[in-house]
Write a protein that binds this DNA or RNA. Structure first.
Lengths: 142, 142
DNA sequence: CCTCTTTTGACTTTATTTGACCTTTAGTAT
DNA sequence: ATACTAAAGGTCAAATAAAGTCAAAAGAGG
């Protein structure tokens, strides 16, 4: 699959973030544009479509001399206590969005969940939903 | 009985899927249409009539630049009764040996299994063990 | 001839790329 | 302090690149 320029920039930034100590990076828009040989607004486009709050990122910037764009991966707002009431599938989708699970992992876990619950008494299904959410939450150290 | 264009495209895609590592392919609608010298919507037609969820396929797509259509074969429902008695952890290790699961996946599934079973009545634990073995067996299309 | 499937193409929606123009900030000269 | 200037980043809309939709036309089989 050929990657679009936007995809490549996204990937590059995500690698930088993942390697950073504090899940936060500071870049210069122009510099990055030069690295990828594109117009600066391409960078703005990538940030505004792929590093949204919904996907768990917070951005700040400053114009003018010594300007910058900072992207920070926000820690999830999910409190441990609220986890019980979250739908497992929605939770998995959210984890995928945040790239804590890849596509295959997400699908596999969903598949396992469905099959485990398939003919289990109703009262245990909710429990398994909750336990899986909690287990994922813990395993991924969120 | 002469094969229709739709039939030929279907066959072509199924060969590609069967040859793929992960039973999943990514194509460009336009490109495929060019290959078969037809309109792009013909491809959409084939996918929507022959690669339905009911027939065990899941599709995703993206429009715009570098768009694609991904078709994934979801696993068939084989129920092998002998699987019931296999220990889940041993089974996972075996899958890892055969490189059907990577380390992270194996560990994550074990972690989930332990946490799901943690305080479930004894009689359901064996069932979950068996269901997970079966689900993995099916999911990985062994 | 009638029905169901296939083929086609016009139109719609979504995603990406590019560039012209706007705003903010820091530094410098007066 | 004030005004000017250069150096950022922001906005927005046009151009381009895909895929989706839908219905009409064409074809196949009974």
């Amino acid at each position: 699959m050929k990657k679009s320029l936007a995809d490549r920039i996204e990937q590059y930034l995500k690698v930088l973030i993942s390697r950073s100590d504090d899940k936060s990076i500071e870049i210069q828009r122009i510099e990055l544009a030069e690295t990828f040989d594109c117009v600066p607004s391409q960078v703005t486009y990538v940030i505004s479509t792929r590093f949204t709050e919904k996907e768990g990122y917070i951005t700040e910037s400053r114009r003018g001399g010594c300007g910058y764009v900072r992207i920070r991966q926000s820690s999830p707002q999910l409190a441990d206590s609220a986890l019980e009431y979250i739908d497992l599938f929605a939770f998995i989708d959210e984890l995928k969005l945040r790239q804590l699970l890849n596509h295959r992992e997400a699908e596999m876990i969903k598949y396992l969940a469905v099959n485990i619950c398939a003919d289990l008494p109703r009262e245990y299904r909710a429990k398994i939903n909750a336990d899986m959410v909690k287990a994922l939450y813990n395993y991924l150290q969120m």
